[in-house]
Simulated assay, not measured.
Amino acid sequence: MDEAGIADIFAAFGPVRCRRLFGGLGLYADGVMFGLAVDGRIFLKTDPGFAADLAAAGAEAFSYDRKDGRRVSLSYWSLPEAALDDGEVAAALAHRALVIARAAAAGSPRRPRLR
């Protein structure tokens, strides 16, 4: 999925900025990363309640395999198929993910930048 397709899906949400991230794209609104686009799929930042709601809508957890063979799951879940065709649903889900991402960013100390 490219940046134009992502902007189209989230048009009702507002501007989404994309940055390259580990072979995919990080999705940002107001300077906060609220989602990922990887292998043609969009994943949103979740907390346990939002993850359960997305799972009930048929979404899947984002995970990847490490070089050592372990599978890693992150707190990102796929955007349900229905949201890809309904901009208002996509916007509502993105807004919820942004609220969660902001709370997570506020609760975690910033790491020092490496030079």
Results as ranks from 00 to 15, higher is better:
Arg19Trp: 01
Ala37Tyr: 11
Ala56Tyr: 00
Ala7Trp: 09
Gly23Gln: 11
Tyr28Thr: 05
Pro109Ile: 00
Val99Ala: 01
Phe13Glu: 02
Ser63Gln: 10
Gly31His: 05
Val38Phe: 03
Asp53Gly: 04
Arg71Thr: 10
Ala92Asn: 07
Gly40Thr: 10
Ala55Asp: 12
Ser73Gln: 10
Arg41Ala: 15
Val72Asn: 02
Ala52Ser: 15
Val72Glu: 11
Phe62Ile: 01
Arg41Gly: 10
Asp53Ser: 13
Leu25Ser: 08
Ala91Asn: 00
Gly14Lys: 10
Asp86Trp: 05
Gly35Glu: 09
Asp8Lys: 14
Glu88Tyr: 07
Ala7Tyr: 05
Leu114His: 03
Lys45His: 01
Ala57His: 12
Ala52Thr: 15
Glu88Cys: 12
Ser78Phe: 07
Ala56Arg: 01
Leu74Asn: 08
Ala104Phe: 02
Phe43Pro: 00
Arg102Gln: 14
Leu44Gln: 04
Arg71Gln: 11
Glu81Val: 15
Ala7Pro: 06
Ala92Ile: 04
Arg110Tyr: 06
Leu93Arg: 12
Ile42Leu: 00
Phe34Ile: 12
Tyr64Arg: 06
Ala94Glu: 05
Ala61Gly: 14
Arg19Asn: 10
Ala97Ile: 03
Ala56Gly: 00
Asp65Cys: 05
Leu98Glu: 06
Ala52Met: 09
Tyr28Ile: 10
Leu74Arg: 13
Gly31Gln: 06
Tyr28Gly: 04
Met1Gln: 08
Glu3Cys: 14
Gly58Asp: 15
Leu114Asn: 03
Arg19Ala: 04
Trp77His: 01
Asp65Pro: 04
Phe43His: 00
Gly69Leu: 02
Met1Gly: 08
Glu60Gly: 12
Phe22Met: 06
Phe50Asn: 09
His95Tyr: 01
Cys18Thr: 15
Ile42Arg: 00
Glu60Asn: 05
Leu25Cys: 10
Gly87Trp: 05
Leu44Glu: 09
Leu21Trp: 14
Gly14His: 12
Val89Thr: 03
Ala105Ser: 13
Pro80Asp: 05
Leu54Gly: 04
Arg17Leu: 14
Glu3Lys: 13
Arg70Ala: 11
Arg66Phe: 06
Glu3Trp: 03
Gly35Ala: 04
Tyr28His: 13
Gly31Thr: 14
Gly5Gln: 15
Ala7Met: 07
Leu54His: 05
Ala92Arg: 15
Ala97Leu: 11
Ser78Glu: 13
Ser63Phe: 02
Val89Gln: 01
Ala11Val: 11
Leu98Met: 07
Lys67Trp: 08
Arg96Thr: 14
Trp77Asp: 00
Ala104Lys: 08
Leu114Met: 03
Leu36Ile: 12
Met1Ala: 09
Ala11Arg: 15
Arg66Gln: 12
Leu114Gln: 11
Tyr28Glu: 14
Asp2Met: 11
Arg70Cys: 02
Ser108Thr: 13
Ser73Gly: 07
Gly5Met: 13
Phe13His: 08
Ala59Cys: 12
Gly26Asp: 05
Asp39Glu: 15
Asp2Arg: 15
Ser78Leu: 06
Asp2Thr: 10
Val32Pro: 10
Pro15His: 14
Ala104Ser: 12
Arg20Val: 07
Val89Ala: 12
Gly107Pro: 03
Asp8Gly: 13
Gly24Gln: 03
Ala90Met: 10
Leu27Gln: 01
Ala29Val: 11
Ser63His: 11
Leu27Cys: 01
Gly35Asn: 08
Leu25Met: 15
Ala106Trp: 03
Ala97Pro: 06
Ala83Gln: 02
Ala11Phe: 08
Ile6Met: 09
Leu21Met: 12
Phe50Ile: 07
Ala105Leu: 09
Ala105Cys: 04
Phe13Asp: 03
Pro80Val: 02
Asp53Val: 03
